[in-house]
Write a protein that binds this DNA or RNA. Structure first.
Length: 822
RNA sequence: GCCGUCGUGGUGGAAUUGGUAUACACGACAGACUUAAAAUCUGUUGAGCGUGAGCUCUUGCCGGUUCGAGUCCGGCCGACGGCACCA
């Protein structure tokens, strides 16, 4: 039996990591003549918890892709950096009295040590940090460009407010009515905020998805999030007033069934109608009540609809001049379709519920095409639910008898002619709330001057550095802690010289990450956010990998910024990422999300310490399909450890013997393996690639198999991206005269030869009526006739056919022959 | 409710995209080595009957298309993720 060695992974891994760093093996080269490949992984937030095994999974996977691409002759840029602004750091600073910059520095150190211990081939010379003034100078600069282009504006808006963090939130940061960060229920507040006009790009953000290679589910989620819908807008006049109410509807065919109009409590018209409203006190109370309701309560469908009538005010349906009542209800979303809806109880379930509650009349104006498809009715024929399908118009004046589709066209045309409405496209996407009332973020580079108003900080004065303060707590009044920093706050107006006040809001932590991949092209540049030529060489990103949770946040935001920069002529393409893939989460042993409170967190350091980085790497690749969530299983790591030790022992015992004749079967298997691994990596199928290595190795490990040096080399080159340290060690073991620089990672990626893949013989399966009955091996060259003959000679087959009649023979080349018998 | 993903052994999962279901690994059981254990190695391992090497059943459930279905179609059940009063 072969000798067993102790696999000294600690020494081996450290040694090669140092050599790789010294020889700058993984640094990208600007303007290289090799074809470029920009491979990007989402950069981490360096939290105090250290690296998560989920980071390890995606960094390793993309590392494997990067290493393989280099071996294929590409000039690969695989960079990393730190997305370091954020609330947890600020909170920790408040608790411990340590400056966030100090904490960030410390956390980055930990992350860096951990990532380096894994042997990920990042190009560290391109490292960036969003909290570095040299970096955020350009984040602020991009903001100024947005401002100059009219895409950044200040507005008092009903925004999502987290009462616990004392901060305004973007819609994307509110998860089921709760603050994404702290879980507190959010409410609506009107606060002056900086906004970015992402809605201006809504169409292009949908349309241009056609030109990029993203996972289909990512595209669908983005499209749904943007929520484009086609409809009609129309104006209802208010009786005895010059005012009117605009509503948006996708079902203008139901216009004759409108029996009320409902406004959102935030609607600005309410204030203007104050003098007409007879029950003002009641209305005011309702507004106050719904303001205090959390978004979660407001959105709770189970609790039914509430509302209050604006007594004394009537609106007029332009189609039949009927007077209908005006209401206020908090089921109407303030920020969509103008914050008002026309109520058609017979044909909209929400309106039906509202009508039942407040005795609003129900008028049917659509009947089903077929009588069987109608809504449920009570004993006296009254509706028990709304009939929401399209159908044929009834009780609709001149439009009676038209189909819904026709009616929508004709009614919209009628409105357009009279200039009281028309076609309208609406989006669920809202403008991006860009202000945060927090310390640990990029200051918004704006000065408020008593004379000139809003004045952008001149570009030469960038960056507006965060001042050093002692108190990081939000003020609770809705102002950022920066508002208490007098010295920093007061500043001369760049226009008129009078004393102004700096903007105290900071940017959300999505700001720095919206363009970081551009900065990687040229991270040290002080003259521009990146050199144009370098961008032209590297951009767009060829492969971008990240979590599904960023689909409607980071991914959409960064596409928006990039498109804006493109429009300004500042970046070379209109989409930032040619290809987007995502990874599944790594869950705890029980299948639940890893969390401190459950106590199922796995620290990668412990695994590296016990088994080494290569074992952790292949375990995480093997555990399941890359794009699906997988639960951690400590036991299964043992199997990977065994595999790696077996490879090490095998090559330690391997006697290099160049006289060895090549085993034909080994050669075939090697070529099959090259094909398999190359294809699996193209499709991000890391788990089956690892399985293929095991299968191959199980075969060649047999002492009877002749394993010549060429095949021995090829195998170790193929596994190298997966277990780089072990592979590099073995490479130098079987090529003892190789210098450090002659790394396995500068070897060319093997190519397979089709002629070697096919064996001389092939196994055929014989089926009778589609059921497997026998199998036999024939020369690959055998013809259909020969195979058929051979199959019919088989005793088993004879037994099954018996004296039944063969009515059909199905022959599938290289696979099977099927006899259909009766 | 809407959109998406998925359902295969005790477990994680394979399956050339309609062609040998259960690859690879974990676990379990038995044996070898050992004073013993660990480690390692060798077997067995979907279920049932036969208990010789033979047959039958099996990919959440029901039906369909096909010579042939884990894969395609229709209907149901269940899990996970996202959105959610968007008019």
């Amino acid at each position: 039996m072969a000798k067993q060695y102790k696999y000294p992974f600690r020494g081996i891994e450290k040694k090669w990591q140092k050599i790789w760093e010294k020889t700058r093996l993984f640094e990208a080269e600007d303007f290289s003549l090799k074809p470029k490949q920009y491979i990007l992984i989402e950069f981490p937030y360096p939290s105090g918890d250290g690296l998560h095994v989920g980071h390890v999974r995606s960094y390793t996977a993309i590392d494997i892709i990067s290493r393989k691409k280099r071996m294929e002759g590409y000039n690969v840029l695989y960079p990393i950096g730190w997305d370091a602004f954020g609330l947890p750091t600020e909170n920790y600073a408040i608790k411990k009295g340590i400056h966030p910059a100090k904490i960030t520095e410390r956390n980055i150190k930990i992350f860096k040590r951990q990532i380096k211990s894994l042997g990920v081939s990042f190009d560290w010379s391109k490292e960036i940090n969003t909290t570095d003034p040299k970096y955020y100078k350009w984040t602020q600069w991009i903001f100024l460009q947005l401002f100059k282009a009219g895409l950044a504006y200040q507005a008092e808006m009903p925004i999502n407010w987290c009462p616990s963090c004392k901060i305004g939130l973007a819609n994307e940061e509110v998860i089921q009515g709760k603050c994404e960060r702290c879980g507190a229920e959010t409410e609506k507040r009107r606060i002056k905020q900086w906004m970015l006009r992402i809605t201006k790009y809504a169409d292009r953000l949908i349309e241009d998805l056609n030109h990029v290679d993203y996972l289909e589910k990512i595209k669908i989620q983005q499209i749904n999030w943007i929520g484009k819908s086609y409809g009609t807008n129309l104006k209802f006049k208010i009786k005895n007033s010059d005012l009117g109410i605009e509503v948006f509807t996708t079902r203008v065919d139901t216009i004759f069934g409108v029996t009320a109009v409902v406004l959102a409590p935030e609607h600005s018209l309410v204030e203007k109608l104050k003098s007409q409203i007879k029950n003002w006190q009641e209305v005011e109370n309702y507004i106050e009540q719904s303001r205090r309701k959390s978004d979660l309560e407001r959105a709770d469908l189970a609790k039914g609809k509430t509302g209050v009538e604006l007594k004394g005010v009537k609106v007029i349906n332009p189609f039949n001049n009927q007077e209908i009542s005006l209401w206020m209800g908090d089921y109407v979303v303030a920020t969509y379709g103008g914050g008002s809806v026309m109520v058609v109880p017979a044909h909209d379930q929400r309106d039906f519920d509202f009508a039942q509650e407040y005795d609003v009349p129900i008028v049917e104006v659509i009947k089903p095409v077929s009588d069987h498809q109608g809504a449920e009715r009570g004993s006296s024929g009254e509706l028990l639910e709304a009939f929401e399908e399209k159908g044929v118009l009834i009780n609709s004046g001149d439009f009676t008898g038209l189909s819904s589709e026709e009616a929508i066209k004709k009614i919209t045309y009628w409105l357009t002619e009279r200039k009281i409405g028309g076609l309208q496209i609406n989006y669920k996407l809202r403008d991006w709330i860009f202000s945060r009332q927090h310390y640990w973020g990029e200051p918004i580079p704006i000065i408020h001057c008593p004379k000139c108003g809003i004045v952008p900080v001149p570009e030469k004065d960038l960056p507006v550095e965060l001042p050093y303060v002692k108190k990081y707590q939000p003020t609770g009044t809705g102002e950022s802690p920066l508002a208490q920093c007098e010295r920093w706050l007061k500043v001369k107006c760049p226009k008129c010289g009078s004393i102004g006040r700096r903007e105290t809001d900071t940017m959300p932590n999505w700001a720095g990450s919206s363009w970081y991949f551009i900065r990687y092209c040229d991270p040290q540049n002080n003259q521009a956010f990146a050199d144009a030529e370098k961008m032209k060489y590297w951009l767009p990103v060829d492969i971008y990998n990240g979590g599904m949770e960023h689909t409607t946040l980071h991914l959409l935001y960064s596409r928006f910024w990039y498109k804006f920069l493109y429009d300004q002529g500042l970046v070379p393409s209109d989409e930032p990422y040619a290809k987007r893939r995502s990874h599944g989460m790594v869950l705890g042993e029980g299948g639940e999300k890893m969390s401190k409170s459950i106590g199922n967190v796995v620290n990668p350091d412990e695994i590296v310490e016990k088994y080494g980085a290569d074992v952790l790497r292949i375990y995480e690749m093997f555990m399941g399909p890359y794009d699906q969530p997988v639960a951690w299983n400590t036991k299964a790591i043992e199997g990977m450890n065994r595999f790696i030790i077996r490879i090490y022992d095998f090559y330690k015992n391997y006697k290099i013997n160049n006289d060895l004749d090549v085993d034909k079967e080994v050669e075939t298997k090697t070529h099959q393996l090259i094909k398999k691994i190359t294809e699996d990596l193209g499709g991000f199928k890391f788990n089956t690639a690892v399985a293929a290595f095991m299968e191959y190795f199980n075969f060649i490990e047999d002492e009877a198999v002749k394993f010549d040096l060429e095949n021995a080399k090829t195998f170790i080159i193929l596994v190298a991206p997966f277990m780089p340290h072990l592979a590099e060690e073995i490479w130098h073991l079987i090529r003892p005269r190789a210098k450090d620089e002659e790394s396995i990672f500068v070897q060319p990626w093997p190519a397979y030869d089709k002629n070697f893949i096919n064996l001389d013989t092939i196994e055929y399966v014989v089926q009778i009526n589609g059921k497997l009955r026998d199998r036999f091996i024939v020369p690959t060259s055998a013809s259909e006739e020969e195979i058929k003959e051979m199959a019919l000679k088989s005793e088993k087959v004879k037994n099954f056919i018996n004296n039944k009649k063969i009515i059909k023979v199905v022959f599938v080349a290289k696979r099977l022959i099927n006899f259909v018998v009766l």
